[in-house]
Simulated assay, not measured.
Amino acid sequence: MNDQLIRDLLHEVADDVEPGDRLDAIRAATAPTRRTHRGWWAAGGAGLVAASVVTALALTNGGAPQTGGPAPAGAPTSATTPTGTTATEVRPATGPVAVYLVGDTSAGPRLYREFRPDLTADLGDDPGGGGRALRGIHAALDGDALDPDYRSPWPAGVSLRQWMPSPEVIQVILVGAPVDRPAGMSEQDARLALEQLVRTAQAAYGDGKVPVDVQVEGKVTDTILGVPTTEPLTGSADADVLAPVSLSDPSEGVVVRVGGEVDITGRARSDDGTVSVQLKRWEGTAVLDAGSFTLYGTGDHPDLASVQDVLAPFSVSFGGDDLQPGDYDVIATVRNADGTVDSDTRRITVVD
């Protein structure tokens, strides 16, 4: 494992977000002064030529779900550079857009993070990062996922009007969002919907758990989908809302050349501190490569949290001459403390 990869993986766990963007062409708007009483929000509770395996360190986010402090009064004068923010404080991103979506686990619905290289197409340098952020948040609201196992609980017709980030607060203004929980939507789905939006917005900005001020048509509301939104939201503890295993790479539908390598990365937590990864033919039972890899925890690094409590990143590469044309599934699996198992999968295609 080289030093740069270690630093990258540690940064991913510490921040739980990807480098950020900023809306390049949104209109200036007046941000209403946020109420001063505190709100509350919580979520419901080696056949191939060798695999190079890198298991990574984990840092805990821990703590109870929180809301941020009151947003600064007054209005940003520019959607790209809010009042009091210099251009050097923004962090334009490169690479795929991180979108949080809902999928099923043995414990019920949880959030998965899907990286979307397709959302950066035709954006050029996108110096403000706004196009990437806009596309990412829209994808989260619409349930626009490459992986057919993922979805969004947001009702149809909800859309993004504005996204205005700053180091103190990220303002997200929605159109068409109900303040009350719609009939047929569970409380858990409502809370996951807000969590999904908050984490996608934080990922777009790329500076950690910056509080997210979610408004409806430019107004602060007591609730959205029945979830308290009086104060900006920072999100819930990872263990409460994230799936126990989630693949970051490869993306769904990625194409790999014969003889190349399949780079597999993701995050996981498990009862035994390991994650199992397989590369198998889509049709049939043939497994081309597989392995069980350790997620490093307190035994190896006493200053870090136990992997049973946080999601630790993992990385492995499968590849070689046995990788022939066809469709394959990448499968990452963990075993939970109650004996159940959870998996995340990606479908890829190998071509000549």
Rank of each mutant, 00 (worst) to 15 (best):
T55F: 02
A56T: 06
A56G: 15
L57F: 09
A58V: 15
A58E: 13
T60P: 13
T60W: 01
T60V: 12
G62Q: 07
G63D: 07
A64K: 09
Q66A: 15
Q66L: 11
G69C: 00
G69N: 12
G69K: 09
G69R: 11
A71M: 10
A71Y: 03
A73L: 05
G74T: 05
G74C: 03
A75H: 07
T80S: 10
T80L: 14
G84N: 08
T85I: 15
T86C: 08
A87I: 11
E89M: 12
E89R: 06
E89T: 05
V90F: 09
V90M: 12
R91Y: 08
P92G: 03
A93R: 14
T94V: 15
T94Q: 11
T94D: 11
G95N: 09
G95F: 13
V97E: 09
Y100D: 12
L101N: 00
L101W: 00
L101K: 00
G103V: 03
G103E: 01
D104G: 03
S106C: 04
A107P: 00
A107M: 02
P109S: 12
R110V: 07
L111H: 03
R113I: 04
R113P: 01
R113D: 01
E114T: 06
P117C: 06
D118C: 04
D118S: 11
L119F: 10
T120I: 11
T120W: 01
G124A: 05
G124Q: 06
G129Y: 08
G130F: 11
G131I: 03
G131C: 04
R132T: 09
A133N: 01
L134V: 06
L134K: 00
R135L: 12
I137A: 01
